[in-house]
């Protein structure tokens, strides 16, 4: 599938109030072109909740629902079961951020996956709690400065590495898990299409660079998605029932340093910190591709 195959119909309208250069709206708008009108959207607390709708206005053109922060898995389960009872084939989709997925929402997510609910769960991952002003999450990479892991004189940013959420979901052996980057258009669209067509629990994990929180020029959002993949910081794969069926290997692997440069959240990095992050990436690379980077 190619972007030229996408329709012009917009189900997430302009006029939304995301920051200029936000990574999330193109993800949402384009994925909705694949999912189509017969879709119900749930968002927990996140930026998308606010910029996609502030009462009485809404960017969504499909039924839209919000309850709370930590329960996306349960909320989409409830909608899906009610619709099944009504004999409807509507797609039920939850779109949570990384905080709502890795941290506070992991329990409800795991429960829904274990029950193999017939839903799509999307994590748009901008690697911190951006909605509330850039606080660290379980997804924040090692060393990154956030407002709760500031680059202090004693402690230089976040001390812990990013959690591998997609692997946790793969371990649930659900019908479909995919990691995505919008910079990889064809891959992105194919995975969205596959997620739409598979039955049962589907987990899509999409990198969503945040110019405000990562501190880079808003024109570079797509570039950041691309470099995240090329450096190995972000890995594109698909898994069905726990088995990896497809891994994208960057044609040219770039040093992690090239990805870090240009992002204010890594500006304080010492050579040792760069090395530590490179070590983490290399280890992951070896685990995924079975070879030395």
């Amino acid at each position: 599938m190619n972007i030229k195959d996408l329709s012009d119909e917009i189900l997430f309208t302009p006029g939304h109030t995301a920051c200029a250069g936000c990574g999330a709206p193109p993800i949402v708008r384009n994925i909705m072109k694949i999912f189509g009108k017969d879709t119900i959207i749930y968002t927990p607390a996140n930026c998308l909740l606010v910029f996609g709708g502030t009462y009485p206005y809404l960017a969504w053109k499909v039924p839209y629902f919000h309850e709370a922060f930590e329960n996306t898995g349960a909320c989409i389960s409830g909608v899906a079961r009610a619709l099944r009872k009504q004999g409807k084939k509507t797609l039920v989709v939850g779109i949570a951020g990384d905080g709502g997925t890795y941290d506070i929402g992991i329990q409800a997510l795991s429960g829904a996956a274990e029950r193999n609910e017939d839903v799509i769960y999307i994590c748009y991952d901008n690697e911190a709690y951006m909605n509330t002003g850039i606080q660290r999450s379980g997804s924040t990479p090692y060393g990154a400065a956030t407002t709760t892991t500031p680059a202090g004189t004693k402690i230089p940013g976040k001390l812990d590495h990013k959690k591998d959420m997609a692997e946790i979901m793969r371990a649930h052996e659900v019908p479909y898990v995919a990691t995505m980057s919008i910079a990889h258009q064809r891959d992105f669209l194919e995975k969205a299409k596959k997620a739409r067509d598979v039955e049962g629990f589907r987990y899509l994990h999409i990198i969503s660079p945040c110019p405000t929180g990562w501190r880079f020029d808003p024109s570079l959002t797509i570039e950041m998605s691309r470099k995240a993949v090329d450096s190995g910081m972000w890995t594109l794969f698909e898994a069905e029932y726990g088995e990896i069926t497809n891994i994208y290997k960057p044609k040219k692997k770039i040093p992690v340093k090239e990805y870090l440069m240009g992002q204010g959240r890594f500006r304080h990095f010492t050579p040792e910190m760069v090395e530590e992050l490179q070590r983490w990436v290399d280890h992951k690379w070896k685990r995924i591709y079975g070879e030395e980077p």
Partner: peptide, 24 residues
């Protein structure tokens, strides 16, 4: 419960898809 579909009001469109009238 604050639930809204799409409504045309004197203040313009509200509800589903109404952000289209918000010129950013």
């Amino acid at each position: 419960g604050g639930a809204i579909g799409t409504m045309k009001t004197e203040a313009g469109l509200i509800g589903i898809g109404s952000f289209v009238e918000n010129k950013t």
